[in-house]
Structure formats: C-alpha cells, structure tokens
Nucleic acid binder design. Structure first.
Lengths: 215, 215, 215, 215
DNA sequence: GATGAATGAGTCTTCATTCAT
DNA sequence: AATGAATGAAGACTCATTCAT
C-alpha cells in the first residue's frame, strides 16, 4: 500500500528503539518493581509506586507489561532465572555436601547485595502469590522441579564418590537438600540471624550423630 | 441525630453475651478467614468474603476484629499457637533426629487435614505479609525464636545422649533443623510431592555419609 | 447458627431498607443517568457524572447497578417499558390510521416533557449502542418485534373495518407504520421541527393520491 | 535535542506529496474508520484501532485528521455526501410515490454492500453523536433540511401531476416521506428483516384505505 | 448488641495526542 | 514527511470501614 520513499531505508535501518534499549527499559521497570515489592509486598505496591520508582510514565510501563499481574510474574520469574544462572556452576563443580549447601545458601544470600534486591524476600512473596495464581504456581513448580532434578544428579555423584552410603536414595536426598535450602531462605528472611556457614555446620553436625546412631 | 431512640433502654438492659459465646464467634470468624485466605490469599480476600463465609454481619465481625489487619494478625498467630500445642509433646519426648524430623513434619502436614485448613499454605501467606508488617514480623520472629530455642535444647540432649558428636553446636543444629522443617513447608506447599518420611530419610542419608567422610 | 435474640423480631420486622425505598433509589439513579445521557451521550457520560447527579456515592450507585453497561441497559430498557405502557391504550382503541399515527407520535413526543427526559434522544442513543452490544440489541429487537406484531394486529383490524384495501398485507403495513413512527423520532430529534399533526397529515396526503393512482 | 540532524536538509528537499495521493490516503483512513466504527461504535473505537486498520502510522493519520472528533465528523459527512450523489438521480426522475420510496430505500440499503460498509449503521452512530456534538448536529440538520427541500419539490411535482390531492401540503408530505425513509434505516438496522419492497408496499397499502376513507 | 447500606479515597488501566528522531 | 514510543489525565470500579436504625 505504501509507496516506499527513497529514503525509507533510512528509517528502516534506524528502528525507533533498539532491542537493547527495550531490554534496558524492561529491566529498569523490573528493578523498580523489585524495590517496591520488597518494601511493601506484592499487593500493597501500587502500579503508581512502580511507575514513580521507574521514572517512566504509566503508559510506558504498561507498554512493557500489560498488567500488574504480568509484571509480578515477570518480577518473580526473572528473579528465578537470575538465580539459576548463579547456581549452575555450583552444580557443575559438585562439592561435597557441606560445602555444597554452604555455597548454595551463600549464593541465595549474596544475590541480594549484588543486585540491590533481596532474592529471599522476593521468594517469600512469590510463594505466597503462587497460592492463588495458577500460572505463577506452575512456573515455580517447574523451576523447582528442575532444580531438584539437578540436585538428584548431584546426590548420585556423591553416592558414586562414596560420600553417601549405598542405600541412599538420591531422590530423597534431593528433597531434603531442597528443603534445607528453601528453609534457609525463610529462616534468614524472617529471623535475619542465620549465616550460610551456620547452616552448613548444623547440617554436618546433625549428620555426624548418624554414624554413632547407625553403627 | 442525637435524639435517643425510644428503645435505647433496651440495649442497656441487654445481658452481655457470654465469654464462651464470644470465643465461639471469634473462632467462627477465624475459620471463615482461614478458608478465604487459603483460597484467595491475604489481600485478594475482601472483608466481604470473610463476612459472608462467617455467616455474620459486617458489624458483628468488626466487633470482634477492629480491622482487617487485626484479623490477619489473629489468623496467623492463632494458627501458630495451634501448631505450638501440637509440637510440645514431640519436644518433650525428644526422639532421635530422624524420627524427630519426621514427627515434626508430619504434624505440619497433618495439621492441615484435621482443622480443614492447610497450615503450610497459611504459613507462606504469613511470611509474605510479615515482610511489610512489622508487628506480624515481630510476633513470628518471637515464635520461631522460641521454637529454635526448644530445638537447641533438643540438640543439647541429643549431644548428651551421644547422638551428636561432642563438637556439635546445638545452636547451629537448631538452625539447620528449623531450616529443614520450614523448607518442608515450602517444598510441600509448592511442589506437593514431599512426604515426611522422604524428608526424614533424605536427611538421614545425607547425614550418614558424614560418618564415612569424617572418620 | 445465630441464636435469635428476644428482640430479633424487632429487626426482622424493620428491614434495613424497604423494597419501595430500593425502587425509589433505583429510579433516582436512572433519572440521573437519563439526564446525563441525554446531555452528553452514553459514552461521554462518566459514572462520576451520574453519581454526582444522583446525589449518591459511587458505592451506592454500584450497589444498584454493577457496571456502567448494566446501567445503560437499564436506562434504555426501562425507558422502553415506560413507552410500552403508554402505547397500549392506543393499540386497544385502534383509531383509524391517521389518528393512530398522530397519537403514537404524540406519545413519543409528549413522553419527553412529562418525565423530564426526552425519549426520542434516548432512543437514538440506544440504537447506536445496540450496534455494538448484542444484549441490548436483542432486547430492543424483541421489543420492536412485539410492537410490530401489535401493529400488524391493528392493521388487520383496519382491514376488517374496510380502512385498508383487501389485498393489503398487515405485515407490510406494520413495517411501514413502524418505520414512519421511528422515523418521526429521528426527524424530530435531529431537525426539531416536526409535529405529530404534520406527520399524520403528510402520511394522509401521501396516501390520498393513491386513491387517484389506483383507481 | 536542538542539534539539527545531518539529514534535516533531506526533508526540506523532499517533494510534496501529490494531491491525488493525499486524497487517496484520506480515503484509506476514512475507510478504516468506517470499518472500525461499524464494528465497535464511535467511542469504543480507539485511534489505535483506526491507525492499525489503515496501515498508516499515528503521525500520518493525525496529519490528515487533527483529532478524533474531526475524523468522526469527516466519516459521517463524507458518508452523507456519498448518499447525496446517489439520491440526486432519483430526485431528478421523480417516479411516483411508491416507486420513489422503494428506490430511495434501496439506495440506502444497497449503499452498504457496494462500499463495504453499512450506511444505515453509520447513520445510527452519527445521529447519536449529533446529540452531543453541535457541529455535527448542524451539519446533519443542514443535510437533511436540503434533502427535505428536495422532497418538498418532488411532492409539488407529484401534486401537479395529480398524484396528490390538491389540498396536500408538500411540506407535510416531505416530512412524512423523510420520516418513512429514516425509519426504514432504523428498522432495517435494528430488526434486519425489512426489505425496500415491503416498505413501499406497506406505504401503498396504508394509503389506499384513504380513498375509501375520504370519499 | 446487631445490621447492612452507604461512603469515597484509592486502584488499575486506557487512549488521544505529541514530538524527537 | 513519517514514525511510533511516550505521556498523563481521566475513567470505571472496589472495598475497608462506619453508623443510623
């Protein structure tokens, strides 16, 4: 329909906004959202709060995230993705249990300072929201399932390395390790007085008794 | 407006409602609130929802709980108290670690069916709310602190019974056990596929290796 | 559940708000809506306009009409019902065509002053809205269909009275009369210079020629 | 921001778009608008809808129509002009009443299919909008006034041809015919079951009785 | 004590229009 | 001329809480 202007290539080669810029804006909004969510919770945070914090206009924010729900979803899942990236190398190196637990929980705790937001607090908000949001629930379930599968792989390797007794079920161990790690998130978010080393030592010390117990 | 109604004496001569009745009404409202909160979350539940579910009138509900926040607080803390009652005997009997963890998590999971509401889901809601509600946060912190103190006592006894090695820190063990148990709440609420026995076995299996490892 | 108080009959016999009162409130809102709709059209009228005009609060208005669409629907259909009531006696008396058309159009035009709103203008708004609102469209179609059926009955009686020639199709006559009457609504709303008598005379004069024409 | 782009000279040297092209673009936009308006009504149609449907950019559309109101005005009045063109030959040939009414209403109904939009539905939208838009109202009034003047001329000629009795008022006949025709628009748009022939027959049949009646 | 209708500030979201590129 | 991202003032609707009866 449109007759091409001779200089139309000019425009075409200069997209209104580059993909990087779009992504940067998205992150700008997500970061504003993270900040607000952590301060006030998911529902007490108004879109106006996020809009102000982002420095953009309402329309601009809505052009990136079509609804508050979408923004919540993105805030939670993007956060999860960020976590995954940081955790992968730990899985790869497969340190022995104590160290492993310490490294995972350090990542969980450190994630915080680095990004200027607290993954642990956000996690609590996300779990709560997942209770009434099937989509978010499914996404999280999927994420934790994959995480636990990785954990089972780690347990298997521990077993092969003689770090776990032969009868140990990697699946059960994975469930226990996941619980310990998620519990660390809760405990440190609520109580604020748990260090990764303490957790790791506690797990080790809890373990030791078993030798006596079992023998 | 200031004219007294002809039947105003009526009110004054009315006998006060009995304390039992008051308590029953309170529970009736709390139960309605629990049901709604679990279905829709804390903030998506409206007072109207709770009022309808309770079968009382708005005014009646407000005469028991002066605000939604108060009701949320009561719903969460009452739930916590209920949990405490059930957990006390386990502390008292102090079974060995594996069994202990299994019993605690069974209580957490069973609590659900008995009362017709899921303590685990409510816990997630409460943790989330505590992020933005200092009062609730303080109450919870206090509760979990007491719980952890009890746990440290248990660990101490385990140590004395030779179930933990001598260098074990009861405080660290308490932190690890609390994390495990809280993590069980999260994992089973989100994933829905974790049984207390699996958790206990996983902890044991994770533990056992240490005997080999350490010796 | 609720133990009845000795004076509960007191309350029960004094419903919070009587049906009459509810109906009066509904009319109060509808009248405010009619006024606003006519002044500004359906969509340019905001709920705030209607709320202000009604003298009630937003919540009160919404407790009677759960959405703007519902209010529009009620405004249009209530108006239609009012018209039906006024038109029934004319159908019953079945005056000859000219007079009939004059009486119907007089009713249409007079409706206005009596109720303080202009049925004709509201009709235009309703027709327009029906283009994009299937529910409203269906309601209107039904109304006009019934109206036209009545008209066909009238035409049949005219025929039997020898006021229409034997070959006349009551159905076609009904369609023509309905068109004339609806057209009167449009013409008088847009031009503002058409009187029922003029319309009736015009129809008659247009008609008369036919005698010459046909003979 | 104030720095001139390197290619700013580019714009200045650009040849103006030809008038034909401008006109074609205008029609392209108007056609998009008609389509949207009919589907969704005047107010539920957003500028974005029209912009998308037109295949142009927001800026382009706004360079042809400086506001939505202007676009609505143009959509309605252009439509009216189109109708006028088609109706002129009928006025010129001045067929007898029945045939005249059939031809006019056929034009109204056929207009639809030919242009891919329904003049009748657009008319309803325009009438409704005219209630709150004095400018549109004036334009329409003027158009219908001219139409009615033409109709009066036709009636005069009918009279001279002996098709109307001597006492007939051309002005009243014009009002009646206009009403019938406008009513056809409403009836066929709302009910969807009226054919031009039926209308013409109905008018004729309604007429005949008068011969008996009057004689 | 009990009722539930009423309140109105506060929410999310839309969309006509502009303007830097 | 053309583009389309950005703006931000509205608008529809909700809901915790009150208070006249």
């Amino acid at each position: 329909m449109l007759v091409k202007n001779d200089y139309s290539f000019y425009y075409l080669s200069m997209p209104k906004i580059s993909d990087e810029k779009r992504l940067a804006r998205r992150m700008q909004i997500l970061e504003a959202a993270w900040t607000c969510f952590q301060k006030q919770g998911l529902h007490a945070t108004t879109m106006a709060d996020i809009i102000n914090a982002s420095g953009l206009s309402a329309g601009a924010v809505y052009s990136y995230f079509p609804s508050k729900e979408e923004l919540i979803h993105a805030a939670v899942t993007t956060s999860l993705s960020g976590l995954r990236e940081r955790v992968v190398p730990i899985f790869a190196s497969t340190p022995p249990p104590e160290l492993f637990i310490r490294q995972i929980s350090e990542t969980l705790a450190r994630f915080t300072q680095r990004e200027g937001y607290d993954l642990r607090r956000l996690a609590l908000l996300g779990w709560s929201e997942a209770q009434r949001n099937e989509r978010l629930s499914a996404t999280m379930r999927e994420f934790y399932m994959a995480f636990r599968d990785q954990l089972a792989g780690v347990a298997e390797r521990w077993k092969q390395a003689g770090l776990l007794r032969d009868e140990a079920s990697p699946s059960d161990v994975a469930k226990a390790v996941l619980a310990t790690v998620l519990g660390f998130v809760v405990e440190s978010a609520i109580m604020g007085d748990v260090e990764p080393e303490e957790l790791a030592r506690g797990v080790r010390d809890l373990a030791i008794r078993s030798s006596a117990n079992e023998s």
